[in-house]
Computed example of a mutant assay.
Amino acid sequence: MKNTLLIGGSYGIGFAIAKELQAGNNIFVASRTNENLSELNVTHIPFDVLTENLDTSKLPEVIDGLVYCPGSINLRPFKALKIDAFEQDLQVNFLSLVKVIQTILPNLTASNQSSIVLFSTVAVKMGMPFHTSVSASKGAIEGFAKALAAEYAPKIRVNVIAPSLTDTPLANKFLNSDEKKEKSALRNPMKKVGTSDDIAQMASFLLSDKSNWISGQIFHVDGGMSTLLTNQ
């Protein structure tokens, strides 16, 4: 049985990953709330990435997998963004992630080969209007992941999933009506909005031994949005 730690996992993509990993993993979910987790066989650790230090006494000595799920979708014109918005996005998306990894690094290196899965966005590769703040913080994750993967190879594998818009509570304001969902689907080459399960299946693969020769990669699970130009 592998020991897998999810930072955030009570809803959305994190919750879908927790469900996907039920077989073959001891799952630890560190999050602000244990909402929805009662139906899963997981160990919950109360934790707020913005205000608290992770309590490692509640974790096993060996951690085989880490998934960092907290994130933001802060879409506004650049001229309307104050520096505080950039700092807040950088804090939740990147700096808190760095702090978590530094905290549990001994646990990760104690594994024969551990796997870290992080999240970016399709907007880092494509360049989209109103995405300056979130793209800056998510772009930091992509560069960080490759450097960390190089530094700790072959002991720790590090990979990034970069989705397009996915139907999660975080994206609710962009998908809170049938009309919005339809418009978002039509903009995607696959003519659908991604689901938490779409992302969870890739995360599960990257955490498993089936991907033990994959590290330092950015996976665009985005319906082809980052690479395909189709007839609209």
Rank of each mutant, 00 (worst) to 15 (best):
E87R: 09
N53P: 01
Q88R: 10
I63D: 05
N107M: 13
I101Y: 08
D64N: 14
P106A: 15
A85P: 01
L95G: 02
I104A: 13
A85K: 10
L105M: 14
P70A: 12
G65D: 10
Q88E: 07
L59P: 06
L54N: 02
Q91T: 06
N74F: 11
A80G: 08
P60E: 04
G65H: 07
D55L: 01
A80H: 03
L97G: 02
L97S: 03
P70Q: 07
S57M: 03
L81R: 02
V92I: 14
K58N: 11
D89I: 08
N53F: 01
Y68G: 03
V100Q: 02
S96W: 08
K58F: 01
N53Y: 02
E87N: 11
V92Q: 12
P60G: 03
P60S: 11
L97R: 08
P77G: 04
L105C: 15
E87Q: 13
E87Y: 06
Q102T: 05
L90C: 12
P106M: 15
P70V: 15
P77Q: 00
Q88K: 14
N93P: 07
Q91V: 01
C69Q: 12
N53K: 06
Q102A: 04
V98K: 08
D55Y: 00
I104M: 13
L90E: 03
K58S: 10
A85Y: 02
V92S: 14
S57C: 05
D55I: 00
Q88F: 08
T103L: 04
T56I: 08
Y68M: 14
R76H: 06
K79R: 02
F78R: 03
L97M: 14
D64I: 13
K99I: 00
L59H: 07
D64Q: 12
S96G: 12
L81K: 06
K82Q: 11
L81Q: 09
G71K: 09
N93Q: 08
V92H: 05
K79Q: 04
I73F: 15
N93K: 05
L105S: 12
I101K: 00
L59T: 04
I83E: 12
V98G: 02
R76L: 10
N74G: 14
I104C: 10
Q91A: 14
D89N: 13
I63T: 07
V92Y: 05
T56P: 00
E87S: 03
T103Q: 07
A85S: 07
I83W: 09
G71A: 10
I63F: 06
L90Q: 13
Q102F: 05
T103G: 07
A85H: 08
S72M: 15
D64R: 07
F78L: 10
E87W: 03
K79D: 09
I63N: 04
F78Y: 06
K82W: 01
D64H: 12
E61C: 07
D55R: 01
Q102V: 04
I73V: 12
T56M: 01
F86G: 07
S57R: 07
Y68T: 11
L75E: 15
